[in-house]
Amino acid sequence: MKGLAKHREIWLGLAILFLLVIVTARFPRFAQPQNLLTIFNDTSILIMLALGQMAVILTRSIDLSMAANLALTGMVVAMTNAAFPGVPIPALLLMAVSIGAALGSFNGLLVWKLNIPAIVVTLGTLTIYRGLVFVISNGAWVNAAQMGADFIGFQRTVLLGLPVLSWFAIAVALLFWLVMTRTPLGRSFYAIGVNPTASVYTGINVGRTKFMAFTISGAVAGLCGYLWVSRYVIASTEVASGYELTIIAACVIGGVSIAGGIGTVAGVLLGAIFLGVINNALPVVNISPFWQMAISGAAILLAVVLNARGEQRRGRIILKRAEAA
């Protein structure tokens, strides 16, 4: 049974390998370690966001406001840096995470206390957060000249051969793996997704657990707000516009079931990397970047079709495990 559950990650890993082999066959330099690390670094932000989204989707909810949260937090942090260059980076990081968590917990409160469906709540806050970026910035940009050197340079600092940005992704992935597999909170995400009624009877507060999931996804979005803004050295109203769907796509390709209760950290990691490899491979094999959108669309559809087959059975297995616990 355990082998069955591992299958999906193995297949996805093979698909990524296959992609790498095809591209490398024509362009040997593509698979050089340095380039692979660059791809990983490029995908780091997507990995973190997709992991945050996974926590929410596991509980049968969805967070459409992540990209808007990212843009708003990124703008606040960038403006703070522009106005008060003296504020140290750790303080800015803390600020980004807390603002993001606050925005996420607002979603969570509406879902928890008022029982409004998550898709409606986050559809509303998506437009509100995005609009607020414009209001606080007056539509202006924060550009490279206004950002401090350490603000831009921090995530580019190379530690043990990897940029800090990559280390962030690794740390977040490890943290998520720990929470999902080793803590009561992580297990209750799965339990709620598989069977909310049964979860209530086992003593799980469903609303509060959803609230936690939204706060976590918000915190991740906030962290990525700073990382995004300092990576692309621009904070504007359009930052990460439409990116919420790419995040969900990474989850789906990684095997997270939109019906809740199914999904692994490893799967999401590979799902995000799969999209990252495609995006990086297209220019190399000289396919116009305009193909990128259609290809990721096709990849999503293929992933859902492949997912759909095993899902029912695996859902029950997780339920049994949850009942035994």
Partner: peptide, 8 residues
């Protein structure tokens, strides 16, 4: 998925 596909 089809949203990306169609616009793609």
């Amino acid at each position: 998925g089809t949203m990306s596909l169609f616009r793609g």
